[in-house]
Design a protein around this nucleic acid. Sequence first.
DNA 1: TATTGTTATACTCTATAACTATA
DNA 2: TATAGTTATAGAGTATAACAATA
Lengths: 168, 168
Amino acid sequence: MTPDPAPLDADQLNAYFALMEVGSLLQHAVEQQLRTEGDLSWVQFQVLARLTDAPDGRHRMTDLADGVVYSRSGLTYQAGLLEKNGLVTRESDPDDERAVVVAITDAGRALIARLLPGHVDVVRRLLFQPLRHRDLDTLSQVLGRVRDHIRATPPRSAKPRRSRGPAT
Amino acid sequence: MTPDPAPLDADQLNAYFALMEVGSLLQHAVEQQLRTEGDLSWVQFQVLARLTDAPDGRHRMTDLADGVVYSRSGLTYQAGLLEKNGLVTRESDPDDERAVVVAITDAGRALIARLLPGHVDVVRRLLFQPLRHRDLDTLSQVLGRVRDHIRATPPRSAKPRRSRGPAT
DNA sequence: TATTGTTATACTCTATAACTATA
DNA sequence: TATAGTTATAGAGTATAACAATA
């Protein structure tokens, strides 16, 4: 049975489109900064940032692919680029010979360190400048909750229900 | 030398990453729905949605390219696909022979009408289900403000862009 | 000359499926 | 059998620059 026909009111549509638009504009802006100043894509930056955050600068491929949005082959491609540029290394995990551990190199850390100020500057200028402190709080909490919800709700390989509306 | 050494604090980083992640996950989800149920990309959906909103279902190419984030050639590409599938038409503007007016067709409207329930369902399930009404309000307001701010902020490598006249 | 839109082209990125190897 | 990752491949999408037509 098709879901009820009026699920989103004007406010909801507003919020939805604003969210998508802000995300798109912001990503565009930071991507340009990353590309210009460090020849890095947004995805590559995310991977390096995640590795930087890790205690020992290491992650398994699967963990990275899980964290970043992409498929495994996509991550292999990006990791290959990063490795070619000397920003990460790949070694097989001694504990599980199937797995591959990606580690950020000193050059990788240096690049991130070099890019971060400009990056942060763009984000602050576009995203935080028009926000009051209280807005920021709410935004952080609300979006965090949404993120957790999305992450928890659809295991991304789940079969989307095909029975949507009458067949054909 | 970098302009401002003050980094983003934890809350800000949180909000920033959450925003990007939610945007990414949400776009992924709706794109899958649109592709599966209507063979439509997110950009194409946006174009059709904008045309649907217009009083007479028409927009000039430049206005669409301005609203959507992409380059003109990108819009030409997408508009070409939409036209090939009979979802829009393109005619030159009688008032300005340089301009091209894109109009949504009945088939285009029908497709949007068919896709909208499922689309809205995805958005509601992923984005609004974990939100209280007050959160939604804040989200809508705050993100709306951010969007306007970004739209108004000239990209530092600003290329001459068509400025919006006050009255159409 | 400036603006609108298209075309040609080259490139990046992503997804799918087949494949290898380990567990 | 199931899982981790790679490879091959194919396709979508995007940006840039050159271009034609109109203002």
